[in-house]
Simulated assay, not measured.
Amino acid sequence: MANRDAGTDAGAAMTTATDSFIAHRNLLFTVAYEMLGSAADAEDVLQETWLRWSDIEHTTIRDPRAYLVRITTRQSLTRLRTLRRRKESYVGPWLPEPLLIAPDVAEDVELTDSLSMAMLLVLETLTPTERAVFVLRDVFSLDYDEIAQAVDKTPPAVRQIAHRARTHVAARRPRETVSPSQTRDALAAFQQAVETGDLTRLLDMIAPDVVLLTDGGGVVRAAVEPVVGAADVTEVLTRLSGALPQPTLVNGHPALIIRRDGRIDTIMALRLDAGLITGLYAVRNPDKLSRMNRETAMGR
């Protein structure tokens, strides 16, 4: 009888652990993706999180959400350091993996701002610990004590890291908030230019120092260095003439899907500053386009 009761208790505990993990899965995935910029690596982190979560005594856990975020953050930090070494040998510019996200997530302005291609690239310039602290504090609003446990620092140290990271990000993020209508206008001009090959209207919207990054990962043809300047960027864009781009939302922001022979060839995202296109991000690496046929559940 005692063995049966013990088995029943263990089964109930596992059910509770599973329910808690499922309830917070979207949050955990989003934390990992914000940390890594890769959905595939975020999924691996979630598997590691589950293995560790399922192997602890849950009766001692007072706040499952905080504990799960702590595990996910630590696993993400470990994975991030591995990714940084991998990126050193990456062929050409590395761009985050683009995602289709649900409309209700896209309505969360603060979250989608942190998910934009431009913002994720800014986060790439932080140290791993700075990135973790910034994401947990400024995106997910965790308190400093919780973050301290996640990154193995003291709360005062976390406050200093948060301030340093926030200052760093503020100096590099888009200089002003761009309205949805401005973004749609820029995207419409870009779409028309690609379809017709007429870059006249688009030239009026491109900043003189615009930067085009193309991520082919060494798998497909792409520029291995950033293309800088309106003249050089527009020359590259003329090669897309005749394609049929489809407007979509990538990471909650307007972007274009460019197909070739019925398959997704390129995801093109834009960065706008002061009404001008200052950044173009073209993801062509097929390994990074596999999720563009379905929505990815995210949340906070």
Rank of each mutant, 00 (worst) to 15 (best):
R263E: 14
T196A: 07
E225Q: 09
A231N: 05
L244C: 04
D204A: 11
A222M: 09
G217D: 09
V227Q: 04
L240P: 00
L212M: 13
T234D: 07
G252R: 00
V227P: 01
Q246S: 06
A231F: 08
P254L: 12
P226W: 08
P208H: 07
L249G: 06
L240V: 02
L202V: 01
A186H: 08
P245A: 09
I257R: 14
L237P: 00
A186R: 06
D198V: 03
L244P: 00
I258T: 07
A231H: 12
P247L: 00
V250S: 14
A188M: 07
A255S: 11
A255R: 01
R221D: 15
T248S: 10
A223R: 09
P245R: 11
G262F: 06
A223T: 04
E195R: 15
P245H: 07
V228D: 01
E195N: 03
R259H: 08
D198S: 06
Q191T: 12
S241A: 15
P208K: 11
D265R: 12
L249W: 05
I257Y: 13
D209N: 12
P208T: 04
I258N: 03
I206R: 05
H253N: 10
G197Y: 07
A193M: 15
A231G: 01
G218A: 11
A189N: 06
V236L: 13
A255G: 15
A189K: 11
S241N: 11
M205A: 12
P247T: 00
R184T: 13
I257F: 14
V250H: 12
A222H: 09
A193L: 13
P254E: 10
A243H: 14
D185I: 08
A186Q: 11
R260M: 10
A231S: 09
P245K: 13
S241V: 04
L199F: 10
H253A: 11
H253M: 08
L202H: 00
L199N: 00
P247Y: 04
D261E: 15
P226F: 09
T183R: 14
G242W: 01
V250Q: 08
D261Y: 07
V210N: 02
T200P: 01
V228H: 10
A231T: 13
G252H: 00
D215T: 02
I258H: 04
A188D: 15
L203R: 15
D209Y: 08
G252K: 00
R201F: 02
T183G: 08
A222D: 14
G252T: 02
P247V: 00
E225F: 06
D261N: 14
Q191Y: 03
V219F: 01
P254H: 13
I264S: 10
V211M: 07
L213Q: 05
D204W: 00
R239T: 12
L199R: 00
A243F: 11
A255C: 05
Q246C: 01
Q192M: 07
F190R: 04
V194K: 07
E225M: 08
V194Y: 04
R259V: 04
T183S: 11
I264W: 04
Q191C: 02
F190M: 15
A230K: 13
V219H: 06
V211L: 02
A223E: 12
D209L: 06
T214L: 03
D204F: 04
V228P: 00
T266E: 15
Q192F: 06
E195G: 02
G216D: 11
L244K: 12
V228I: 15
F190P: 01
R239A: 15
P245M: 07
D265L: 10
V227T: 13
I206N: 01
G217V: 06
L256M: 07
I258P: 04
